[in-house]
């Protein structure tokens, strides 16, 4: 096994285009899988030497967050938690405090788990990934990146450099909740991210709802968002939201929960998440 730490995207894509190469960001999934003998890469390409993967920048259009920025760093940013608290909270539910000091948004997405906590947060926020590869740079909405467990829409040599998060709408709020049998140190049985925007009268003008761990990939549930748009997010709208969330679930029975349980909890959790996002949107 060879370890490389390139400092340019070009050098990184060249290394990643070779056989048996894996990206190392925080390493909280990769190194564990290597120790468990699940993965045995020939080359480990540490992207943390590339400046763009480690920065958070802000302009009028929103935030650009490097793919290797950690959950703890998101939390420490002076304004990100005010604008996108749901996303920051989602990233800081991953593992323990120690893990949150290493684990990154890019890694959490590219590990390819349908249960990744930060992914519904990113999808709800409308995040778009900036991807570089041998053929140059392209962008892709986060909901289109993961195709199935451990399967991504990235081609050989490609990796995610950063995520673009739009500027928060004037009356905008987001939230993320997950269900786990414990209080921490666990993996989502259901995860839900909601971001919504209100006009000055309190009517919902836009809503994005994302569910994790209820299908082979994290879902953007468009019907759930539609259930809220044009409403005051009242009980009738929330009931429609709940039904739409449940209808979108295609979960499996496994050691972490049954199909019936995941569908039930997805509805419950989506309503609870939407209420928090609504509260936040009303306060700004």
């Amino acid at each position: 096994m060879r370890y490389e730490k390139p400092t340019t995207v070009e050098a990184a894509t060249a290394l990643l285009a070779g056989q048996g190469a894996r990206v190392l960001a925080g390493g909280t999934d990769l190194l564990v899988q290597m120790k468990a003998r699940v993965l045995n890469p020939d080359v480990v390409v540490d992207i943390k030497g590339i400046e763009a993967t480690r920065e958070i920048t802000k302009d009028a259009s929103g935030y650009t967050i490097g793919a290797a920025v950690t959950g703890a760093e998101l939390k420490e940013h002076p304004t990100l938690s005010k604008d996108w608290p749901g996303l920051v909270e989602a990233a800081n539910l991953i593992g323990s405090t120690q893990v949150q000091g290493r684990a990154s948004l890019g890694g959490n997405l590219c590990n390819g788990s349908p249960a990744a906590d930060s992914v519904p947060g990113l999808i709800a926020a409308g995040a778009v990934a900036t991807i570089v590869g041998p053929k140059g740079t392209r962008t892709l909405p986060v909901e289109d990146i993961m195709l199935a467990p451990r399967k991504l829409a990235l081609t050989a040599g490609e990796f995610i450099v950063s995520f673009k998060i739009p500027a928060r709408p004037k009356h905008g709020g987001d939230a993320y909740l997950r269900f786990i049998p414990r209080t921490e140190m666990d993996i989502a049985v259901v995860g839900c991210g909601v971001a919504l925007a209100l006009d000055d009268s309190g009517t919902c003008t836009a809503a994005r709802v994302s569910l994790g761990a209820v299908a082979a990939r994290p879902l953007l549930v468009e019907d759930a968002g539609k259930a809220l748009v044009g409403t005051k997010v009242d009980d009738a709208a929330l009931a429609k939201l709940e039904a739409a969330a449940r209808a979108a679930c295609k979960p499996i029975d496994d050691k972490r929960g049954t199909v019936e349980f995941r569908v039930d909890v997805a509805g419950t959790l989506t309503v609870r998440t939407a209420k928090i996002a609504l509260e936040r949107a009303r306060k700004v």
Binding site: P181, R182, T183, E184, M185, D186, I187, K255, R256
Partner: peptide, 16 residues
């Protein structure tokens, strides 16, 4: 055995 680790064999943690 499907849960041979502390992730899915859930002993309570302090915050529980």
């Amino acid at each position: 055995l499907q849960n041979a680790g502390f992730l899915d064999y859930r002993i309570p943690v302090a915050s529980d």
